[in-house]
Every structure is written in C-alpha cells, then in structure tokens.
C-alpha cells in the first residue's frame, strides 16, 4: 500500500490484533483499544491498516476514534505545523501555502516527516482572521504567510538540527 510509512513490524502488530478479533468490523472498538495499548497512539496510517484488515471504511474508524476521548491520534512532530483553512485564510490563499508546505516537506496533511521533526495539519479558523492566511508552528503564529515564505519558516526550525542533505 503506497503512502503508508509504517514499518513491517508495526503493521504486523496491527494485523495480529485484528486477527485476534477475527477481523470483524463489529470489534472495532476493541481492536482500537488493543492497538493503542501496543503502539501508544492511533495515527491515520494505523487507522488505515485497521480499516483494511476489518474491511470497513476508514472514515468510520476515524469517527469512532474521535468519538472516544480515550483514543489519541498524535504524537505530533517536534514542530507541529498547522495551516488555517478557515474562510478568511482560504480566501487569502492558504490553499497555496498548504501546497507549498506539502511540497517542501514531502508529506501530506496529518503526516510527520520521517525524522519526526515536522508534522502538518489543517485547522479551522484560529480566530486571527486579520492576519490571514495564518500558519502556526508549535505555539508560534505566522501571519500573512505567502508560499514564498514557507521555505524560510521551515528553515528556522531546521537549522543546526538536521542537515540539508538529509531532509532534502
């Protein structure tokens, strides 16, 4: 399955849990519970494997994971990047900013970079519409972000930590 970056071992663990519950869709909650017990959290990729194993829709898995506060979907990257997709930000071009982040980091929304430095997420309006489009990295807010600024924002957090070559 392209796009999933779980290790063979992790996938094996999830598959084992699913088969312990006879790969039955009705056991979803138990499967999620056990999987979280073993892996610590339930990111998108894990939910996808579970959906596939139980042959149910991944949207449904997501619905259940978000319904119970017990389940968690994140450890985020060291520097979680959030792009506001509220109306004001959307209208002022957050879509292009998001596209640039995706391109620079080579990840999709809801994913982390392989070195776990950055994770990418979309937010609903963060209440700073005057600064649209708004990007948050950790607790820091960047306003009026243009796609041209993306590279610099990323490098602020990269410097001294990761070599350019490695993250390219």
């Amino acid at each position: 399955m392209p796009g999933i970056k779980l290790s063979e071992k992790t996938i094996g663990i999830i598959q084992q849990v699913c088969s312990d519950f006879r790969n039955e869709g009705s056991e979803l909650i138990n499967v999620l519970h056990q999987t979280q017990g073993k892996l610590g959290y339930l990111p998108a990729e894990v939910q996808e494997v579970i959906a596939k194993e139980l042959n149910i829709s991944v949207a449904k898995v997501y619905g259940v994971v978000t319904f119970y506060s017990f389940f968690t979907m994140i450890p985020m990257g060291e520097h979680p990047i959030s792009i506001c997709m509220g109306t004001a930000c959307y209208v002022r071009g957050s879509e292009q900013v998001l596209a640039e982040f995706k391109r620079q980091l080579s990840i999709e929304v809801g994913q982390s970079t392989p070195d776990n430095k950055f994770s990418l997420n979309c937010l609903r309006c963060v209440g700073a519409c005057g600064l649209a489009p708004v990007v948050m990295v950790g607790d820091r807010v960047y306003g009026r972000v243009s796609p041209q600024m993306v590279k610099n924002i990323i490098s602020e957090y990269k410097e001294g930590c990761v070599s350019e070559a490695k993250s390219a």
Binding site: I56, S57, V58, A59, Y62, G63, T66
Partner: peptide, 10 residues
C-alpha cells in the same frame, strides 16, 4: 457504499 463521510467527535 462509499463511506466518505462520517460522524466524528461528540
């Protein structure tokens, strides 16, 4: 039979 949409959160 697509299941693109779901009810999430509570």
């Amino acid at each position: 039979g697509v299941n693109a949409l779901t009810v999430a959160h509570k």
